[in-house]
Design a binder for these strands. Structure first.
Lengths: 155, 155
DNA sequence: AATATTCACTTGTAAAATGCAAGTGAATAT
DNA sequence: ATATTCACTTGCATTTTACAAGTGAATATT
């Protein structure tokens, strides 16, 4: 669908930004990691309201770049399920730092301060916990196996 | 020069991406933090080759958003010097995580593995060291007061 | 069994952002 | 006095994005 664009430089930061450095890619990853979203329709329903064609284009790119894999749902064959690869799961530390910065500098953030403090208190531990949870189909904030449920018990 | 665009949501990650989530902003910050660049001409000379009007637009936006401050050079009044604010310095942990991800996943990265390992070994310590260095006019890789010189002695 | 709805997209088009080449004016160097 | 450097701006072609409206296959409903 799209030709391979040549890289801008050999800088690792430039490489990373070519992979996920647009306005939408990290929001898709966020939806997976924090809210357990997995399908086109779920991504589309996010508050930010991205256009249908842009979402389709970004999902395809992220699959191309090896961040996501697409599988058809076993129980409903209309649905496609998008999952993070290892390479995609490796983005979790970046996501946590960005969220921390955003929560700190946005006066009207909706991020729970308790969560941010928890993450900042022991980042390596939280990365591991989130990673394992997401890998086994869970998320940070949603679902019975969410990270917050694991940490604070039944909801 | 540009009207205030309304925010997409109250998510801290969305807020952060609205501030620096385009293809170029973080490369400008990288140039400051890693290479000690400070002027329009220095940013323009980067390997990635950004267009002159885009660079001007990004510098203005980053100033608007409180990431950079612009001051005219005291010795050469043609020059404008761009410096990171506290809010901008707070991006250092994000930059380190992105660089680490990029170095790990780019097969042809030019990032020195020794540096990446060093950062990953004690991130909090390195963030502090880099922050103090940049705040006092230095950078990670360039100049006699660079972080690498501090760590490994004279170059 | 027939119809309606859901789901993951695609298509068309207008508006906006980007990339490129060529200026511009003020400050400094020659 | 003139040339060069510096930080931009301007104009225009190309690309990307946003919005609205489809499309076809799979599932749910009647």
């Amino acid at each position: 669908m799209k030709h391979k664009q040549q890289r801008r430089s050999d800088c690792p930061i430039s490489f990373a930004l070519e992979t996920f450095g647009d306005s939408w890619s990290l929001l898709i990853i966020r939806d997976i990691v924090y809210f357990g979203k997995k399908t086109y329709g779920e991504f589309l329903a996010s508050d930010e309201g991205m256009a249908t064609n842009i979402l389709a284009s970004r999902l395809a790119q992220l699959e191309d770049k090896g961040i996501l894999v697409k599988k058809s749902d076993t129980t409903d064959r209309r649905k496609e399920v998008y999952l993070l690869t290892e390479k995609g799961l490796d983005l979790i530390p970046i996501l946590l730092e960005i969220a921390s910065w955003g929560a700190h500098h946005d006066p009207q953030t909706r991020a729970p301060q308790a969560w941010i403090s928890l993450v900042n208190a022991d980042k390596a531990k939280m990365v591991k916990l989130i990673r394992e949870t997401v890998q086994s189909g869970g998320a940070v904030f949603s679902g019975p196996d969410s990270v917050v449920c694991q940490l604070f018990g039944e909801k």
